[in-house]
Nucleic acid binder design. Structure first.
Lengths: 162, 162
DNA sequence: TGGTTTATGTTATTACATAACAGAAGGCGG
DNA sequence: CCGCCTTCTGTTATGTAATAACATAAACCA
């Protein structure tokens, strides 16, 4: 896990394969429950995102998709759109990248939810946190604004990198 | 001011030229005060952003830069980076666009600040609101995370479009 | 005025994302 | 089982966003 800043970032570990398999199975079940199909490209895309516990670029998924050679962009972008709709991944706007939803890990709740992210500019790690936003809700109502989706991303340095 | 959704959006008005001139002068003064140079391409870029009171795409600025023909991308991207550093514009991550900072309008405070945005998906208008984020600050400290910059963007429908 | 720093001009390339259409696979009523 | 419809995938091409690298020019300053 080498990085732009030159450090090793041993603390940014990958999930072991058993853990990933468990989350892939869970994703399968979730889709089935919603009457949606968890197809091969969707599963492969999710697998590649779960392989990192940091946001992954679409073109990294594209490049790693096949053992020999890359996938075509639409294949992956379509899978990403689907996985996002299912609530299995989140798009990180400030990075043009995608990260697995932490709400599905460790048997936590599987409800779709608004999420906030703590994004380390040094090691690239991502932590998903749940927050309510009373102030912006209030400002929105005051303006007569109907909020549909909120993006909340904090960029900075994680504990290990400080 | 026609838009993708097919409406006219008369409520998304442009600033009159006197107002824009005032804000350009104010921007000049701000740069002078900071010992920075408000050059022609920077001023022109700011002018084009002030012409809309909605987020503007970089390539729209590029296309409109000269009366006859477009500017080269680096010219505009460099100006945008400068204006953002000066706190005169904000980047809207979820739109890949830039909007003038409202904190400089109407003689309000000129301090650099974290801002939140209410972004209408129908008419494209943007409203900048000031909010504090006690919950995410708290979550960040709990994780040992040092926040440097926060992106907060609410997408939805403005009062006029609802 | 000459050297240094900062900004711009220019060419080229890289990164990110989707349109459009053809074909395959799954679902379902007959 | 067949035919139809819908959904998903494959493929080509293109559109959109952003930056690298280096040459030139302008401002700053000793």
């Amino acid at each position: 896990m080498s990085h732009a800043c030159g450090h090793d970032h041993d603390h940014v570990h990958t999930l072991d394969s058993g853990r990933i398999d468990a989350r892939l199975s869970e994703a399968r079940r979730l889709c089935e429950a919603k009457g949606e199909r968890m197809t091969a490209p969707r599963l492969r895309t999710l697998e590649l995102i779960l392989n990192e516990n940091a946001p992954v670029k679409a073109y990294d998924v594209i490049d790693r998709f096949h053992p020999d050679g890359a996938a075509k962009p639409p294949t992956v972008y379509r899978a990403l759109a689907f996985l996002e709709q299912m609530g299995l991944i989140h798009r990180i706007e400030s990075l043009n990248a995608f990260v697995a939803c932490q709400g599905h890990a460790d048997g936590k709740a599987v409800q779709p939810h608004a999420a906030a992210f703590l994004l380390c500019d040094c090691c690239g790690s991502s932590e998903e946190v749940a927050v309510s936003l009373p102030e912006i809700d209030q400002q929105a109502s005051a303006s007569g604004f109907e909020t549909r989706r909120v993006t909340l991303e904090a960029r900075g340095l994680c504990k290990a990198c400080r």
